[in-house]
């Protein structure tokens, strides 16, 4: 679109590749013919189709995750030019303005790398289970409408409910550290996942699950599990680990007020802890 980009014929994409967990990582550069309005996904599609690096050498296609390509599914998160974001909404023209001539892609830094740009984010879903991020309805039969809700309450819950568990918030968090358990030979997928879950048991939950706990504590029926959620939030790896760097809210692609959720969680756990002392 800019004058310089119309003249550009190609650009380079440097990708941090890793064949499998435990393997060394290496950089590989690909040369992509320039066209306007590309995004990182279409670049990766082109790489898959040509399977040839910038030196013209044949190589395996780069593995990556994606699904909706509309920034609502949360699958295609990666570290692009040093910053974690969704690759579907990362536009090549903008990225080349950020960093002339080259785009740099890396897998997310806080999750075990599966291959190339694919990471295992199951820890985030397990965290949602820890904070019981659901409404505990009796059953799925017809019992009429749910609780009435003010517009104000809906407007507060809706943004929190847009969280797609993409992991940007925790990847940019200086308090969230990677936990990786290597798979043993002949270990089943399930056994390996169980060991991984055990290893991260006491590790930080991160912003997204904290915010989800606040979402459900705000709902009339959801609040019936509020104490359980606050126990989880004040347990190992809970809200106390937050260091208030506030990167989470800065990188959240959905602009979810994560730091407000964190402060609310701070308030609720404070009251909860004091109550626990006096109710003993």
């Amino acid at each position: 679109m800019t004058a310089s980009s119309t003249k550009r014929e190609s650009f380079d994409v440097r990708i941090l590749r890793q064949a499998a967990p435990g393997e060394p990582s290496r950089w590989e550069t690909f040369r992509i013919p320039y066209e306007p309005n590309l995004n990182v996904i279409s670049v990766l599609q082109k790489i898959a189709a040509m399977a040839r690096n910038a030196e013209g050498k044949e190589t395996t296609p780069v593995a990556w995750d994606c699904n909706c390509l509309e920034e609502v599914c949360g699958a295609c998160t990666m570290v692009i030019n040093g910053r974690v974001r969704q690759s579907c909404s990362a536009l090549v023209d903008r990225l080349l303005e950020e960093h002339e001539g080259e785009i740099e892609l890396q897998p997310m830094t806080k999750f075990p790398v599966v291959r190339d740009l694919v990471v295992d984010r199951s820890r985030m879903f397990r965290a949602l289970e820890k904070v019981k991020a659901w409404v505990p309805v009796d059953d799925y039969y017809d019992r009429g409408a749910g609780p009435r809700e003010s517009q104000e309450s809906q407007e507060e819950r809706y943004p929190l409910s847009e969280c797609m568990t993409c992991g940007c918030c925790v990847d940019a968090c200086p308090q969230y550290s990677k936990v990786e358990v290597e798979r043993r030979p002949n270990e089943s997928i399930e056994e390996h996942q169980a060991r991984q879950a055990e290893a991260e048991k006491s590790e930080f939950l991160g912003a997204a699950p904290i915010s989800q706990a606040m979402l459900f504590n705000r709902h009339a029926t959801g609040a019936m599990l509020a104490d359980d959620r606050l126990n989880a939030l004040s347990g190992p790896g809970g809200i106390q680990v937050c260091g208030n760097a506030q990167n989470c809210v800065a990188v959240c692609p959905k602009e979810i007020p994560l730091t407000t959720s964190i402060a609310r969680a701070g308030r609720q756990t404070t009251v909860h802890a004091i109550k626990k002392i006096f109710d003993r």
Binding site: A172, P174, Q246, N247
Partner: peptide
């Protein structure tokens, strides 16, 4: 103990609050 566990990332995330985090 808290500081030992930090993973500063100000280069990639040069936000004001993040600088204060590291400076703290």
């Amino acid at each position: 103990g808290i500081t030992v566990g930090m993973i500063p990332n100000n280069k990639n995330y040069p936000y004001e609050a993040n600088w204060r985090y590291t400076l703290q």
